[in-house]
Design a binder for these strands. Structure first.
Lengths: 418, 418
DNA sequence: CGCCATTGTGTGAGGCTCGCACAAAATCCT
DNA sequence: AGGATTTTGTGCGAGCCTCACACAATGGCG
């Protein structure tokens, strides 16, 4: 891999906020300068394009409440750098007037490499700025984790294969990790089933290997970022993502940013208490939400009830049993939905998102599952005048996480200084 | 009250972000302009002064990583407007050099009017920029609430009395309300024990009455703002406030801002579930944190145990009983502390603040109470390498809320556009 | 007394947005 | 058919802000 960056790529990168290819080196809360205004506004305009779809300069200016010339000045360098293109002229609705030239992301723009690192496999892909997945490589990891180097080799192999298909070097590499991470340091804190990775500085390693900026984050937060740029969260000012399945996780978006607590903690919803002194949790405490809203709970209860395929029970199977009228399925379905709703209600009360995107197992249960969870949440949250809580399904497969991983890089590219 | 604003006051106001005296009219997420850079940086410099204490221009420039001339340019108009003053020259530590002139808030600066509106009384005061309380007036409200106009009259009377003692018209009026509010509209949503106030547009009313900008917020959030500007939260990048007593409440600070959910919801921690299907709560649901961590719970349990003065039990009395070795007091003390810790632990897991400032009843229990709560929190939160959770006591009286109410105006004055 | 370090202040350069004027392009109306 | 109207996108100078540099002021140290 050539470490030198062609001139056009360097220009494109300078239009964004990336200072250098190294991880970290984020400035602390400092004063603003005029040049930061430039990059911040560039980010805001691109963000608006994501939220609105192809949009003309004049329309962007109207929506942002600024002068048309300002938008022209902002987008011109982006057009020159092949990040945006002018689409064909489009007639504005009523009256006459010069037809608008909507702006959209150029197919010739550099892509982003998204990586999903789970305990059992690595999945890498290329994502275009408009959210299309181009290349796509999956490498299985040794059973039970094993030593660290083979895992890292697998990551590097999958990324190398993916990058080989890119026509232009990507903007950067984003990694969604199925475990705890430290986003400040770019290190893995702990991955269940792959303890060898604990503390591994994977961002630095990949950055040196490929000479590209690398951003990593926790799996649920990557899901949120994917939804924000490419999914159900586009244009929504505040929302939360809740992931259910073998584990529970959550993430928050508001004020134009993914919420990250100190060092990237936060959203560890699985081990909040919903039943003080309740059932013993695998974390060693008692009464965590994890004990009543994971697949583990569902399968245990299904076994007690003697439901078919109890050991492989999930939302899809459960809904199927309910629809076939199997004895005991409907009450279990209702309890499972309610248990999930309890955690969502607590999150709603604590930080007041009114729009939730569910990922993971709950999505497999389809509209019926989502609707039942919604019903319970609405009953569990004290009503507040004028507030409507909406719950929707995200994408359940790897795709959401891969788009999210790519979105991590995008979020960084558009970093608006404050 | 004269509605015209003297020239010097108008100048001072223009240096901040207040567009006009009306409530609302906040701009949506829009593009930045150069002039916004100016007001944002002005706000950041003043914020730095709050966090650092008296500081010279050169020192501020070093800490912010900007040119000295930039700081000079920023503070000069603030000096001209009598908001800041140059303190006496101070010799820098080692070596020679021209002595620095630390900048600090001028005693001649306009004050801020802080108001605390509780179901039983209105409390108004004047607060200087360096956190001193000048005038101070308290008006009792009619028992049981009653109609709305007498309550509003009492508010206006207390503010009028307070403003009469001000040498210069204050920057604005901040109100901490002991109930639900809508910070977007500046209205009261619901105050227990004073239902006549529900939906009352108190910000607009006071703004018209006194011709001043009015900001209002929920009581716990005002506490947080007070701590951020004048208390334990100064210079802390991320922290949470938890209020315990007759009710429970919380608020979050991070990223340079108080966190407000949509319309000012969020932090309604009292009715998060910690005991699914547990004891019946006054909100009609079961197992809210409110059922195990309020004074109501403490007094109920004290009665069951036959402790003296059970009906007036609070943390101060309880700690006293513990110190005197009264039978049953120590276990109740421990359970109460643990019940409070449960909610704090959940908040920590959800949004990951590592610094908590307690207010209300828990503070009355002194260092012993705080220490016990801390112990429980540390046991209830899964450990994360390198993370230390710190819990401190705030101020328990009205003072904290009044400073907080004034801080609401200050936060708005320093609004850094994004 | 001379040298050095540090603080605070002018001055011009460069970046950004804004308002205005103007060319280009399509529709509407007579 | 042709002019009026409307809308889009683009130069140009003004104004605001930060920055780099030079310079006066002030005190310690040898």
């Amino acid at each position: 891999m050539d470490h030198r960056i062609p001139k056009r790529e360097a220009d494109a990168r300078r239009l964004f906020a990336f200072g250098d290819a190294e991880f970290g080196a984020r400035m602390p809360q400092s004063l603003l300068s005029s040049s930061m205004v430039g990059s911040a506004n560039r980010g805001l305009v691109i963000q608006a394009l994501f939220d609105l779809g192809p949009t003309s300069r004049a329309e962007l200016a109207r929506l942002a409440g600024v002068n048309r010339t300002t938008i022209s000045g902002i987008v011109q360098p982006l057009l020159d750098a092949d990040i945006l293109v002018e689409n064909d002229p489009v007639q504005t609705g009523r009256g006459g007037g010069k037809p608008a030239r909507p702006l959209w992301f150029s197919p010739k723009a550099q892509p982003i490499c998204g990586v999903l690192l789970m305990p059992d496999a690595v999945h890498a892909c290329l994502v275009t700025l408009d959210g299309h997945v181009l290349a796509d490589h999956r490498v299985l990891l040794p059973e039970g984790g094993g030593p660290v180097e083979p895992i890292i080799d697998a990551v590097i192999r999958s990324v190398t294969l993916t990058l080989a298909e890119a026509e232009r070097p990507p903007f950067g590499i984003g990694i969604a990790v199925g475990g705890m991470v430290d986003t400040d340091l770019g290190t893995i804190v702990a991955v269940n089933l792959a303890p060898a990775l604990d503390g591994y500085p994977i961002a630095t390693r990949l950055s040196h290997e490929f000479g590209l900026p690398v951003r990593l984050d926790h799996h649920p937060r990557a899901l949120l970022v994917g939804d924000r740029w490419f999914g159900q969260g586009r244009g929504v000012p505040q929302f939360a993502v809740v992931y259910t399945g073998e584990v529970l996780g959550g993430a928050l978006y508001f004020g134009g940013h993914l919420y990250r607590g100190a060092s990237g903690a936060g959203g560890e919803l699985g081990h909040t208490f919903v039943q003080v002194d309740g059932e013993l949790c695998r974390c060693g405490r008692r009464g965590c939400w994890d004990t009543i809203a994971t697949l583990g709970w569902l399968r245990r209860e299904a076994r007690v009830l003697g439901l078919p395929e109890a050991d492989d029970m999930d939302s899809a199977r459960l809904v199927d049993l309910v629809q076939r009228g199997v004895q005991g399925a409907e009450p279990l379905f209702d309890r499972y939905a309610r248990n999930i709703a309890v955690g969502i209600a607590n999150l709603q009360q604590t930080v007041a998102p009114n729009y939730f995107i569910l990922h993971g197992d709950a999505v497999l249960g389809g509209e019926r599952m989502i609707a039942r969870i919604s019903d319970h949440v609405r009953h569990l949250v004290p009503s507040r005048p004028g507030t409507l809580i909406e719950i929707v399904a995200g994408d359940a497969g790897d795709q959401a996480a891969l788009l999210g991983a790519a979105g991590l890089v995008l979020s960084d590219l558009l970093q608006f200084s404050i």
